[in-house]
Structures are given as structure tokens and as C-alpha cells.
Write a protein that binds this DNA or RNA. Structure first.
Lengths: 119, 119
DNA sequence: TCATGACATAGACACACTTCGATACAGGGA
DNA sequence: TCCCTGTATCGAAGTGTGTCTATGTCATGA
């Protein structure tokens, strides 16, 4: 266990979800887990919400900062919940407002799945 | 047009679809295009089919090589069509069999969208 | 020409998903 | 305490998606 840390800077806590797509055929279980990650970003509204959080100063944003995506407030809340369930965002209430923040580990996992195409 | 090729090895024909998610909030149009890419890989069966092609020797596979994913033959055909429409696969008939091959440009685009998380 | 095997298409069904209005809940200020 | 604002949840309506069976198309070979 001591000589395994050859590249200690890589993968701080990247979930060992699944291998790169071109390494070997995915098993059924791996495919289900991997598909869930992609599905979280497969909706335009979710993508805009996520992008708004990710590009906001400080890496976090209040819901009120990002709600201007052309759908109703309950719909925004619904999609933010989905992104949270997928592990892409975390949320924290501070007084009146709720702040969402990007959780980078799942995105890093998605990038690993894309494998060599991540050139 | 002659002095623009400063980095000729980068992005051979990567479609300039969309910026990285953390660069700025996506526009509605960008979000629709980006979501379509992720949606193509958001189904477990499609993911297994794609992975089977991507990991097959020579980077291509006959349908008969990858059909063992637990669904009927028409369903396999349906999903392969979706992957083709999304630009992730190309197909070519050679005699009796149809061969599918990975088209790396869209995957590279997805990787670019993931941005810095592609570490 | 006909049968066979590989793959695609058509139509139908069940289920999931996105969206909304209505409503509930939480925190801050008067 | 009461009201107002920000956010979440509920339930319903409409649409989309995955899956199947049945059938069509294409190439091969007898």
C-alpha cells in the first residue's frame, strides 16, 4: 500500500465509478451509473443552471442569481434538486437565500469516462 | 488565412459548439446543442453499445459483435441510430454486415465543455 | 429465382420526464 | 406576532423515450 502512490496529485477523491468508454465494454451496472451522470446534464435548462453556477464568481451562486432561464420558479427548483441528487451541485442556506456550489468530483469522473477523447 | 494556423495540431475539426461550462452562462441555443450531446450518452443501453464499439479492436465493430446488451435486436438498432444521429458513431455496410465506428470529434467537444474538470 | 440471415423501420404501449399553478415552509423585518 | 420574500414540495397535464412485435429491405448463396 505504500508504493502505490506514484502519482499522488491525481484523483483526490474521484469516485472510481467506471472505466473509460474505450477501455472495455461497460457492464450493465457501470452503464447505469455512468448514464445517470450524463443524464443530469442532458437537459438544456439544467445545463444553463449548472453553467450559471459554475461560471459565477466564487464558484457559487444564489438561486436568485441564476433563475433567469425562461422557466418558472418551481421548475428551477426542480432542476437544481436533480443536479444535487446527481452530485453535481451542493447547496447551503445562508439566511434568506440558498447558495449552490459546483462539486467537481463527479465532473472529473465524467471526464475520465470520456477517456482519450479528452484531448 | 495563412497566419492563423498557430497551433495546427489542435482541434482537427472539433465543432465549435459551446464554451466550457464554467466560462460563462450558456445561452439557450448553446444549452440545447450541448444537452443533445450529453443526452446521447444518457441511456445505459446506448452507453454499453458505444463502449462496445469504442473498445473493440480496430475501433469499429459489426452489430453482431455488440448486440449482447439484454434488449431485442430492434432496440439495439434504434439506439445505434440515435448514436449516429448525435454524431457519435458512423456506420458502413460491408456485404452482409454493418460496421459502426467511433467519431471522436463530438466526444472531444463534450470534453471541452467539461472544461477544467477534465483534469 | 428463392430461401436465409443481418439489420432497419413502423406502430403501439408503458413509463419517465418536464413543466406548470397552487401551496407549504423558512427567515427577516416591522 | 404578522407579513413579505425566497425557495421547496405537491399534484396534474402534456410530451418524450425505451421497449416490444411485426414487417420490410438488403446481400448472400444454392
Amino acid at each position: 500500500m505504500s508504493n502505490a502512490k506514484v502519482l499522488p496529485l491525481l484523483e483526490p477523491d474521484i469516485v472510481p465509478c467506471c472505466p473509460p468508454l474505450n477501455e472495455r465494454p461497460l457492464t450493465a451496472d457501470e452503464a447505469v451509473r455512468t448514464a445517470a451522470m450524463f443524464k443530469a446534464l442532458s437537459d438544456p435548462v439544467r445545463l444553463r443552471l449548472f453553467s450559471a453556477v459554475a461560471s459565477h464568481e466564487g464558484g457559487e451562486a444564489c438561486v436568485c442569481d441564476i433563475s433567469d432561464v425562461g422557466v418558472s420558479q418551481p421548475t428551477v427548483s426542480h432542476h437544481l434538486k436533480k443536479l444535487k441528487e446527481a452530485g453535481l451541485l451542493t447547496s447551503e442556506r445562508r439566511g434568506t437565500w440558498v447558495y449552490y456550489r459546483v462539486e467537481p468530483s463527479v465532473l472529473a469522473g465524467m471526464s475520465k469516462v470520456l477517456g482519450q477523447y479528452a484531448a
